[in-house]
Design a protein around this nucleic acid. Sequence first.
RNA 1: GGCGCGUUGGCGGAGCAGUUACGCAGCGGUCUGCAAAACCGCGUAGACGGGUGCGACUCCCGUACGUGCCUCCA
Length: 492
Amino acid sequence: MTLQLHNTLTKKIEPFTSQQEGKALLYTCGPTVYNYLHVGNWAAYIYWDTLVRTLQANHYSVERVMNITDVGHLTSDADDGEDKLEKGARREGKTAWEVAEMYAEDFMGGMEKLGLLLPQHVTKATDFIPQQLDLVRILKEKGYTYQITDGIYFDTSKFANYADFASLDLEAQKAGARVEFNPEKRNASDFALWKFTPAGEKRDMEWQTPNDLLIDPNQQLMGFPGWHLECSAMAMSILGPTLDIHTGGIDHIPVHHTNEIAQSESASGQLFSRFWLHNNHLTADGTKISKSLGNGYTLQDLAERGFSALDYRMFVLQSHYRSESNFSFENLAAAKNRLDHWRAIAALRHQTHDTLQNDDDKSLDDHSVSLQATSQAIIETLNNDLNTPETLHIVDVAFSKLDTTSLGSIHQHGLQEVLNTIDEVLGLQLQSSTPDIDDDSKQVIIERQRARDEKNWSESDRLRDELLGKGITIRDTPGGSIWEYAPTTLLQ
RNA sequence: GGCGCGUUGGCGGAGCAGUUACGCAGCGGUCUGCAAAACCGCGUAGACGGGUGCGACUCCCGUACGUGCCUCCA
């Protein structure tokens, strides 16, 4: 099966194709760096990392841009809230620049812990101010903008298909709106492209508004970009007017992405993105994740309870990206146990003695065949709109078979191939987390076997404890002793 | 008020119109020097009411409940 993806644009699952053969242009809406990311935020990046890996498994080279929003994201989409960065800065007694730097660094650290592939372009909104102003200029020249007291706005009534993407009923929304909108705006859905620093205020982050963008060119106005503008400016200036895929959270459909499409397509006259993928949200402890509820767990919170970032990655892969899923530590523990089992299987690759070099050797029951088929099946299920839960099921079935297979009968090459595939597409680092044990430990295992042969149980148990001290557990099977890495214990 | 989604066993979570999802947890057993692991078995899931099928968890309609976005947020 070729890669099929659910496209929000058409609300259907469609075969994926790119504009340029073998190359996919991808834009991912990144974080606003005014706080630590919580598990819900991270889930999105894990899903999109799986997308990138799946594209690569389908022989696409991926050129990907991810923004870091370090300015202009207001605390309200009504364009009259505070800037999150400026607010965060006041909270912490720092400048907006320092806050952005600190949390951006934390974000990059989290990416690494989770084993997320680094996009080719990780771009900060503040590094793309000229490009954003250029976009405003183009829109102004084409007659899509108007200026009011607090900024330059995009007139959504001039973009005929504005409501289509999110199936918006603008009139009904207006009637039921719970937020007062700026009465100077021509339409409730109009949004700020560029905001002016209010008179008498000084922001940490502000730039001179180019005179040619103003009604009165003699005005001297400081300002800053609206939140939606940055994504369009970075995406188009780096990847060109039309993306192959644009990803983001489901919450972005009605406002952020709708606005991105409006401003980008109005400026370029071309389709902004051919595919739009949206991840559903995570709840935590049965309710929506929210700072005020205290369930916005961070990676640090997980670590303090004995869970690694990769345990969390496994947890996220257990549900489909378009389903709403629920985070709890109980569920995370289930994911961790599953990952520990997979690692035990991965450790077998050091302990098999491959007597069969030929994959087609039929004398070896069906293990080699099934392992080969597993690698293929993993890609197939991911190609089905990134069906990661089904992928895990396939791996479980294959690994269960290995549980019942004696060491000598495991087809090492096939196992190696499956592990490679899993690590490539799921990023669980099964192999790097299970290096071969050192020679000393191997010697201890041999000595223990000798003690057991002599029924010297006290010596045998002593050696087993010695290995446990090194984080290695032993299980004795009819076919011999097998070692694996001891699972890390959870803090209660 | 508008738009959307969901309801599967103790917890999580898929596929599929007719045969075990899978994982985790629980109980019983086998194996084992012990332990661990593994294996076998058990608990007979599909909100409710209709409809269409020989047959529905799986398609259609309705009801109830829950939930998301429109307001911080992936």
